[in-house]
C-alpha cells in the first residue's frame, strides 16, 4: 500500500504519513485507530511509546523460542 493510498483511506495529507513513518509526528488517538483499522491490526502493533526493536532482532528471538 502506498502512502497516498493510506492517506486517502484515513483522510490525511500523504506527507502526514511520511511524518508518522519517520516518527516526526505523534498521531491523535483517532488517527492511530483509523490506521490500525486499515491494516486490521491492534493499534499497539503499529504505535508505541518506546521505539520498536529492529525486525531482525524480533525474528531472531522468535526463532530461538
Amino acid at each position: 500500500m502506498s502512502r497516498k493510498e493510506l492517506a486517502e483511506a484515513v483522510g490525511v495529507n500523504p506527507q502526514t504519513i511520511g511524518y508518522l513513518e519517520r516518527g516526526d509526528y505523534a498521531p491523535s488517538v483517532e488517527l492511530a485507530l483509523k490506521i490500525a483499522a486499515v491494516f486490521s491490526a491492534p493499534v499497539e502493533a503499529l504505535f508505541s511509546l518506546e521505539p520498536f526493536p529492529p525486525l531482525a532482532r524480533t525474528l531472531t528471538k522468535q526463532g530461538d523460542s
Binding site: 483522510g11 490525511v12 495529507n13 506527507q15 502526514t16 511524518y19 509526528y25 498521531p27 491523535s28 488517527l31
Partner: peptide, 8 residues
C-alpha cells in the same frame, strides 16, 4: 481542508 498534523 487541513489534516490534524497540518493544523497543529
Amino acid at each position: 481542508v487541513l489534516d490534524e498534523r497540518e493544523l497543529a
